[in-house]
C-alpha cells in the first residue's frame, strides 16, 4: 500500500492547482483517493518510483502495460504484461477484445482506402484506465500495445511499433522458429522489454 504522506484533510493552495490537468499529477490525489491496490494499473511501480515533485509532467508518465503479437487465426503468439498489479487476465481480455476493432478497421473498405499501406492502426479503443493501440504487419500479424490512460503521441506509438516490428522480424527469422507458433525466444523478450522501457522517453530516433 502506498504510504500516506499527505493528510487527508490538509488543503493544497489553489494556485498550485491552477492550470494543471489533474490527471497529470496523480500523486497529489493520493491522499484523497488512496486507490485500492487493484485499482492502480500503471500502478504501484509508477507511483513508487517517481519522485513526488508534481511540478512537471513526468517523463515516464505513459507506460506500456502490455504488448501482444496475435497470429493469423487471431491466436496469441506473444503476450507480455509489464505491470506489477495482478491484472494479467484483464489485459488478456483487453487485447482479445481489441481484435474486434482491428477487424472492423481492416475490413471496412470505405475507410481502408486512404490507409491501404498504413500499418499503424492507431488507438483502437480506450478502456477503463488503458488505451489500446494496434499495428498490422503486411503479413497480417497483429501487434497490440496497451498503455496507461494518458495522452500518447502518435509518433511515439508509431516509433514503438516500428522497433517492435523489427524485433519481431528478427525473432521469426530464427531458423528454429516455426511460423505460426508462439514466440518463445528469450532474446526477443529481452529486446521487447528494452523497447518498452524506452517508450515515451522522447527519443524518437
Amino acid at each position: 500500500m502506498v504510504p500516506v504522506d499527505v493528510k487527508p484533510s490538509s488543503p493544497i493552495s489553489p494556485h498550485e492547482w491552477a492550470g494543471r490537468e489533474p490527471s497529470q499529477s496523480p500523486e497529489l490525489l493520493r491522499g484523497l483517493s488512496l486507490a485500492t491496490g487493484r485499482r492502480q494499473p500503471a500502478g504501484g511501480r509508477f507511483l513508487r518510483s517517481s519522485p513526488v515533485t508534481g511540478s512537471s509532467p513526468l517523463p515516464g508518465g505513459i507506460m506500456i502495460v502490455c504488448v501482444a503479437v496475435v497470429g493469423h487465426q487471431n491466436n496469441p503468439l506473444y503476450l507480455q504484461s509489464f505491470t506489477e498489479a495482478d491484472d494479467a487476465l484483464k489485459l488478456h481480455h483487453i487485447v482479445h477484445c481489441s481484435l474486434d476493432v482491428i477487424d472492423e478497421r481492416v475490413n471496412n473498405p470505405k475507410r481502408s482506402a486512404p490507409t491501404l499501406n498504413e500499418t499503424f492502426l492507431g488507438l483502437l479503443y480506450p478502456t477503463e484506465n488503458y488505451k489500446v493501440y494496434g499495428y498490422l504487419t503486411n503479413t497480417k500479424v497483429k501487434f497490440i500495445m496497451v498503455t496507461t490512460d494518458l495522452e500518447v503521441k502518435d509518433a511515439d506509438a508509431r516509433n514503438f511499433f516500428r522497433k517492435f516490428h523489427a524485433a519481431y522480424v528478427d525473432a521469426v527469422s530464427n531458423p528454429f522458429h516455426v511460423p505460426g507458433k508462439k514466440i518463445a525466444s528469450r532474446s526477443f523478450g529481452a529486446r521487447v522489454s528494452t523497447i518498452v522501457k524506452s517508450f515515451g522517453s522522447g527519443t524518437t530516433s
Binding site: R105, K110, T115, L121, G122, L123, L124, Y125, P126, G134
Partner: peptide, 20 residues
C-alpha cells in the same frame, strides 16, 4: 476523418456506440 484513433481523429469507433 475515417482514420480513427490517429492524430487526424482521436476518437474511436466504439465511442460512438452506447454499448461501449
Amino acid at each position: 476523418s475515417p482514420r480513427f484513433g490517429t492524430a487526424d481523429n482521436a476518437l474511436t469507433e466504439w465511442e460512438f456506440q452506447p454499448a461501449y
